[in-house]
Design a protein around this nucleic acid. Sequence first.
DNA 1: TTGTACGCGTTATCAA
DNA 2: TTGATAACGCGTACAA
Lengths: 346, 346
Amino acid sequence: MTGVLIPGPGKRVTLRDVALEAGVSIKTVSRVVNGEPAVNAATAVRVAGVVERLGYRPNELARSLKGQRSRTIGLVISDISNPFMASCAQAIEGVAQEHGHALILCDSHADLRTEGDYVGLLTQRQVDGLLLVPAHGHNVHLNREQQAGLPVVTLDRPAEGVQADMVLVQNRAGAREATEHLIRHGHERIAFVGDVRNFYTTRKRLEGYKEALKAANLKPAPSLGAHSIELGEEAAKSVLDAPDRPTALFAANILTALGALRAIEHLGLRIPEDVALIGFDDFELAPVLRPRFTLVRQPAAELGRRAAEMLFDRLEGRGRPEPRRLVLPTELVVRESCGCPVEPAP
Amino acid sequence: MTGVLIPGPGKRVTLRDVALEAGVSIKTVSRVVNGEPAVNAATAVRVAGVVERLGYRPNELARSLKGQRSRTIGLVISDISNPFMASCAQAIEGVAQEHGHALILCDSHADLRTEGDYVGLLTQRQVDGLLLVPAHGHNVHLNREQQAGLPVVTLDRPAEGVQADMVLVQNRAGAREATEHLIRHGHERIAFVGDVRNFYTTRKRLEGYKEALKAANLKPAPSLGAHSIELGEEAAKSVLDAPDRPTALFAANILTALGALRAIEHLGLRIPEDVALIGFDDFELAPVLRPRFTLVRQPAAELGRRAAEMLFDRLEGRGRPEPRRLVLPTELVVRESCGCPVEPAP
DNA sequence: TTGTACGCGTTATCAA
DNA sequence: TTGATAACGCGTACAA
């Protein structure tokens, strides 16, 4: 026995230690710790005292190994530094917390291979379920895990090549509504600046845009592939430099919205007098910009929350076995960049 | 060999299954899986084949239980939906990944009690180390874990009542530099709008602000307690409504910066002609605002990265035993809201 | 080169 | 009401 009272590194107190100290069997300690009924009140109190004094904490790893469930879920997200994703993640973390589960965070950087690696790692860690924002491509790695019985819920977009639960937002309807709003302002040449074409969200928003134009007998003018603010700026510039300059722009995500903003300024045009502008995907500063930014808002927190809840429905055995698909409404937040009258300062 | 190739739900393949199928002992399979040398090449190949065919994946939980290290670290962050924190988290996740560790994400919502609960949960899960953005208050719960040998690194601010490694940014120097910049523009009445006074970062920035004013023989005019955009707006309004209106404002964080922006507009003042403005804490839209926003930028990703690296230094036994403290430089990004000449559009 | 036996810390079974 | 003992899946020590 050393003179040191503070336990050295790595010396964790186990059930055995408590049992020894309290003069009972480890099972009795286990019972007390887990609040099982069949324990003499007196011994329970005594054991609880020792537990407290020694600072015993159950080893969750051992519990998991024994119990076949890790009380852990995995989240593979495409980019946590994206505020939209961060809000999703925050909501997910909250739901996991409520259900007594830990959340392992993985950032795939929207790379399919990285995503696959992460999914593998997570299953090795015996996660009880998986939430993911799938990278573009064929998410085959999910098949294997699903067939092994791992519940999977995707959010923001569906996984390809796999049948999984999913929670989406109304990309098509949202884009359509925004475009219709521009049409109602009298615009006839409305351009679309969007991200990479083979992204699910880009495609859907493009569809909505086209639908609206078609219904009004107008000609679509899409420009795709803008995967950064810079590319968005270039795309917007070339669109606005065309001979028959569009009088309105629909920027299908935040990157292109900001890029468009820069392009418009660079060209010396005014919003909304020369070019009306509507974006997709919320950002905190939208109401601070001048003119105030009109956009299609996505319910980020709710997206995360509902996806997590859907996962726990599975984990807790609720709901039908067939894949579920939930689509959340977007909201057109009308401010000024679309050409609507300036609100009085609040 | 059964006829069913696809394992049913929950039926995880174990070393035993592989061993049985390959006609070898468990240990031999283990050797093959872990790439240990002492294995006959032929059997190694055969076993590897079975591993592949059965889709065996080592149970990381069992490994951890045996090996006394979970290859998992915990991150307790105050608010993941804050872009600054999200960038930290992203960098941390990357470093964890590089070191083969999983990252458990916990959002304390800046609540001390929640933080304590999370720290407890994480140790129960046998995390190898802890990263946290401590909530305000006495972070006593850390003492216990630290004494049990758990490495802890805090970021953005120090923990109170505990000696732990930490990575900070130069709050004082950054604020001082910003204030000096305003002074150099000729301002003599420079107000400070900041978050809650007992926040470490608020205090340090306030100190820097005061230092700069004192050196110039000017009188400080701080307004504290602005813990939301709305409160920031009110604070800025009351400051700017005072009889001797300040000609410049230093907004000590992003919330107050946005609040100030609103207040200034509401009062019908112009930036920087009527009020010059400098903020603290970067945001993506700063260059998009008009006028372009001058601010003190914090190296969020580096903060996260360095903190994580510091943790792994400990985990891998590098470095001295005494607590380390790393302070990263901030950068004054001069744009227009401070009164500097308008840059030509790029 | 391969296999046996044990232990990691828990919970579950069954007997006392 | 309690306790010995066997799992959980893996790695380590030692034998064969």
